[in-house]
């Protein structure tokens, strides 16, 4: 008999019932199938109502993050063979409201993303659309922020962050990393405009340096380190502004 593997998924349909349930499917086991391949098999062959997000299936669009046996993972690049012959439990990303089955509500994240002003800010506004020449930026200057450009907004770090779980107002790892990315881009002059948000009560100071965000990040953005650097930067800034008599 062909090999099989059991996948248990969270089910929730607000049209029908108020409570979360689980359902277990048995699917054929292939050692080169991703968990997403498994979910797609269930949807095509066993139960068309199973609901989840996916798109690129190459770990760059950021759609398919779910809790896999308790850890936030991209399901397109997590394989059945990591768990076989054990069972797999798939739940929606933790710390977010659930819309249906494995689909969570990202409204809060999307709002925060905008609030950090993730675009190049110039003192002279006409710089922003001057196409006569590019800004000069050396590779060394680019290295100061490049790692933080790699965030795919998959929100695994929010699902992993115990602080966000307790305080949903916390700006959170990916958005702070994005603020850092622009603050450290030599083309940008908007650091002061972002400070109020990043150093607010719900900003960097809420982070208690657990480090789970960095652990689960599939793109090595290292939000944890960035948050600590932003803290130092803001403390220093506060100190200097104090010396200058601004506060």
């Amino acid at each position: 008999m062909a090999e099989e593997i059991k996948i248990t998924v969270t089910r929730y349909n607000p049209d029908k019932e108020a409570e979360l349930k689980t359902q277990t499917f048995t699917i054929p086991y292939h050692n080169d199938w991703s968990i997403l391949d498994g979910l797609n098999y269930i949807k095509a062959e066993l139960d068309g109502t199973l609901t989840y997000r996916w798109s690129c299936r190459m770990a760059v669009c950021g759609s398919c993050g779910m809790m896999v046996n308790g850890t936030p993972r991209l399901t397109c690049s997590t394989y059945l063979n990591e768990f076989y012959p054990g069972e797999i439990t798939i739940e929606p990303l933790a710390n977010f409201p659930i819309i249906r089955d494995l689909v969570v509500d990202l409204t809060d994240f999307m709002d925060k993303l905008k609030e950090v002003k993730p675009w190049i800010i110039r003192k002279n506004k006409s710089d922003e659309n001057d196409t006569s020449k590019e800004y000069i930026q050396t590779t060394a200057q680019m290295d100061k922020y490049y790692q933080q450009t790699l965030c795919i907004n998959c929100t695994l770090c929010y699902a992993a962050c115990p602080v966000y779980g307790l305080h949903p107002d916390f700006i959170g790892p990916a958005v702070i990393a994005l603020g850092y990315r622009y603050n450290n881009d030599s083309r940008d002059q908007g650091k002061d405009e972002r400070r109020k948000f990043l150093a607010s009560e719900d900003g960097v100071w809420k982070c208690t340096v657990v480090g789970d965000c960095t652990e689960v990040c599939p793109k090595h953005v290292d939000p944890s380190a960035v948050i600590q650097r932003t803290k130092v930067d803001n403390a220093t800034n506060w100190f200097f502004s104090f010396l200058k008599g601004k506060k």
């Binding site: 190049i120 922003e128 196409t131 590019e134 000069i136 930026q137 050396t138 590779t139 881009d185 940008d188």
Partner: peptide, 21 residues
């Protein structure tokens, strides 16, 4: 013009040694 415009909007194009695209 368009590739310079997207540079001004933050696209991290790889650079030559002198910092041009």
């Amino acid at each position: 013009n368009e590739v310079r415009q997207i540079e001004r909007w933050g696209c991290p194009w790889n650079r030559e040694e002198d910092g041009t695209i």
